[in-house]
Write a protein that binds this DNA or RNA. Structure first.
Lengths: 340, 340
DNA sequence: AATCAAACGTAAAACGTTTTACTAAGTTAA
DNA sequence: TTAACTTAGTAAAACGTTTTACGTTTGATT
């Protein structure tokens, strides 16, 4: 309805030129007389002028959006990450734009279009699946700062903010081994993204250190998410395992559910560990032993890398490793000899 | 680095005019010779041409973004809603842009800027707090289709897709009353948004029907989210309540935790109900009795209203009510006489 | 031969900004 | 008094599209 208010309208109302208005409204008008500045601001307010996003973007100042790509917004770990990024970015004037990739491959085209279109000032890629297809296109895009997290080893074209997956994986396996567990089931997704491969290798390291063979017959590959965890649990109860490592908390939740459904007790029958320390982990009964990820620090670093690089595009690429912390809760206990 | 490929480059490569290229690439070039069309498409592919988002937006075709504003992406109900909207919108060519309002009031300015800026084709507002401040600005924006969900009674300026809060609220209170509970604690946030007021009035209706006075001394107003629920629970154990209604599942999760911490059992000591039926509800022990929201249908309707209105801007405003369903699980049981 | 209509294509305006490169007037320094 | 600055402001180009309103050919019809 209401005709769009343009900068020209403001200029006219103030009896000044378009240039003047633009300069003042963008904070580059220090050199103008104080009352001129006041008049411009006043007119803008009165007319309810808002600069057109597209026109502004066209001329060079490419919006203020920060893209975040996550594999699954339903996974509380990623939801939390998104929330933390928002909290860090907004006060600095960047507005996050969230993309949750569910059936990833159908969406690829859209992403390219959006990002190659140059809408974003920067991009945080937390979607491990993304590797080749997308990343290649993106890296050669004009100069779009890229930050990978969860991506482990794609050293090309972007900064990386990572946790030390191998060490964390090792810690969690060691915890169970220390408690006397020897037959430990592993619940993993069908395809291991780069970071999960690292995490997995941490398990291996711990097993090796304890002289325990990797339990090939106890590796369960299931769908990502709680449902997969549940499916794994129903198979695990038929084995002689005494402990279960889920690749992340989201799958561990499903493991809980599957065990409950079979009338098994945690930790009496099975010790269970997860990874991520999602809020839910401490709401489960019993509370879940897991690895705490420094989500806030992760978010903060990712955002600051982008902002820094925007200011100095030729900054050398940087790989940041952040520390994790094993959180021991009620879901793990020492093995009870002869219990089974 | 690589200079941006413009439509002019494509035109030049194909030996044709810019107009021709534009027309063909936008599917409006039926009238051009078949081999001309092929040539244009080929050149575009070879040069890896992507139309500039801003330039395109400037001239009228305002992007393909769909805004979704939610109060809290950490609440699984909203996370699910976002995910469902994406699933519906993307295949239809619209790309969701998610805004999670956490400390809402600090972010208001940004929202206005983004939306009044005209970036979005439409906007789904699931943030009950938004009412006056924002909505007013937005409604008078050029012609931005607005859909309110969760908003109850703001009939102005947008379509509404709602559930029948009052009926659902009534059902859940009735469930407890039928089980013999008379002293029922209510766990609510400090400020009730419009939809929650409705929901609450449903509780009242049920109480009235059973001749039970509204338990003013059992209404606990706490912070939104699990923490608030936990705080409420620690106070409730000091009362003679036998059942607890949490305003939503997210708070119910906290109630669970608070009760556990006090060594109370569910449902033996307290029957507990929530609202939303977030995935977690069925992962809790015991599983949570709650009201199932038709999230998928909600999302589908919201998106289709926007798309319809984009095609026919003068469509009459519509209010859609979708049915909810009481899901009885293990967290509620008949009152045990003389138990306390 | 003159007219008309397809069929195929294009020039140029418009969108609303930011930015570059000026100008005009007043002030200071020599 | 003149040259050099400073101050306060502006005109116009540029950004990359889409769209409107026109050409040209060519062939068919009178």
């Amino acid at each position: 309805m209401a005709k769009k208010v343009t900068i020209r309208d403001v200029a006219e109302a103030a009896g000044l030129s378009v240039t003047t208005v633009s300069l003042i409204l963008n904070g580059k008008g220090a050199r103008f007389a104080a009352d001129t500045q006041a008049k411009v601001r006043h007119c803008a307010k009165v007319l309810d002028y808002h600069p057109d996003y597209f026109a502004r973007g066209l001329v060079g100042q490419r919006g203020n959006s920060l893209g975040i790509v996550v594999p699954d917004i339903l996974n509380p770990f990623f939801a939390t990450f998104v929330q933390q990024v928002s909290e860090v970015a907004i006060p600095q004037g960047y507005f996050p734009q969230v993309f949750s990739v569910n059936g990833f491959h159908e969406n690829v085209g859209h992403f390219i279009e959006q990002f190659a279109g140059g809408t974003q000032r920067g991009l945080i890629l937390a979607a491990p699946g993304a590797s080749s297809e997308i990343v290649d296109k993106l890296t050669q895009s004009d100069n779009l700062p890229l930050v990978f997290t969860d991506q482990a080893e794609v050293s090309t074209g972007g900064d990386m903010v990572l946790i030390d997956e191998a060490i964390a994986g090792q810690a969690i396996a060691e915890h169970l081994l220390k408690l006397g567990h020897r037959r430990i089931a592993l619940v993993v997704p069908q395809t291991l993204s780069l970071n999960l491969v690292k995490r997995f290798s941490g398990f291996q390291t711990a097993f090796a250190a304890y002289g325990v063979p990797l339990p090939d017959d106890l590796i369960f590959r299931e769908r990502f998410g709680p449902d997969g965890g549940e499916a794994a649990a129903t198979k695990i109860v038929a084995t002689d395992a005494t402990a279960i490592i889920a690749i992340n908390d989201d799958m561990a939740v499903g493991v809980y559910r599957g065990l409950m459904a079979q009338g098994k007790r945690i930790p009496a029958d099975y010790s269970v560990v997860g990874f991520d320390d999602i809020p839910l982990a401490s709401y489960l009964t019993p509370q879940l032993t897991t690895v705490h990820q420094p989500i806030h620090a992760l978010a903060e670093k990712a955002v600051s890398r982008i902002i820094d690089r925007l200011a100095h595009p030729s900054l050398p690429l940087e790989v940041t490793h952040l520390a994790t912390r094993l959180v021991v809760r009620g879901s793990t206990t020492a093995i009870i000899p002869g219990n089974r």
